[in-house]
Nucleic acid binder design. Structure first.
Ligand SMILES: [Zn+2]
Ligand SMILES: [Zn+2]
Ligand SMILES: [Zn+2]
Ligand SMILES: [Zn+2]
Lengths: 132, 132
DNA sequence: CTTGACTCTGGACTATACTCTAAGGTTTAT
DNA sequence: ATAAACCTTAGAGTATAGTCCAGAGTCAAG
């Protein structure tokens, strides 16, 4: 059983973040000392690792909470359930990708139409376009 | 000079949003009635149009504030200034694109490794990977 | 036995972009 | 004249993901 500072160091997150995750139901220390210090067991440490890994692949905290539900109840969940969850996330990411690409294109079109010269921007096509 | 409701309708934003923009220094009505009602002139209407257009191509409100500065002082700004601003934004968008692509790849790798079958997820490669 | 390192709680603050509510005043149409 | 529609303000709430702080208690070492 380790205390919060050590877990924070090991997991590369801040103490504040661990307490924040706790407040949002992502992780709860298995025990407390008499003085009220949080004590984390092996399983808690693993759980934090899970959260960190899931963050790295782009899941939000809300999604991670759902993933943790799947993990904890994996006996009564199927690979299908898990895969569907990930595939749904991929769809969301794809939508975001499409939107970001659209924005990139718009900006590039804007940029390409502008001469970028030294003259005053009174006739700048970028400003003109935004003014339409 | 039109009132907020009409401008909101014309510009396809809510009254609340217009007041929100005002609070954040993006637009100020040219006048007020005796009763304190906001009155918007032609130039105000154009300015809202500018904001809406800029939003559509992905600028944040903060960036739009800077763009409006460029627009207002276009006499003493050059096309170069404007283009550089846009090009800098394109860089930011590209970074976001790179990150989102990385996430997509990670998720796809995750998904592809999972059989997606009916059996319990006790050995699911997705959960295993996140637990590492 | 005191100093420094560590921990606790609750709450405020950051950034982004609104959205909604309450309580009240104004304008317009019938 | 009165009801509907419109407007005002301040402030709270939403979602996301923390970060920081104050004031106080705890623990190990010299
Ligand atoms: Zn030019
Ligand atoms: Zn230009
Ligand atoms: Zn499987
Ligand atoms: Zn699986």
């Amino acid at each position: 059983m380790i205390r919060i500072g050590k877990l924070a160091h090991q997991s590369q997150v801040s103490r504040d973040t661990l307490r924040f995750y706790e407040k949002h139901g992502l992780i709860t220390p298995s025990a407390r000392t008499d003085a009220g210090y949080r004590l984390y067991a092996e399983s808690d440490i693993k759980r934090v690792g899970f959260i960190v890994s899931a963050k790295k692949v782009g899941f939000t905290l809300n999604e991670i909470q759902q993933l943790l539900q799947l993990e904890v109840t994996k006996d009564i969940k199927s690979c299908q359930d898990v895969k569907e969850f990930v595939d749904h996330k991929i769809q969301l990411v794809n939508e975001q990708l499409t939107e970001t690409r659209r924005i990139k294109k718009s900006l590039e079109t804007l940029s390409e139409a502008c001469c970028g010269g030294d003259e005053p921007a009174t006739q700048c096509t970028i400003l003109d376009t935004l003014n339409r």
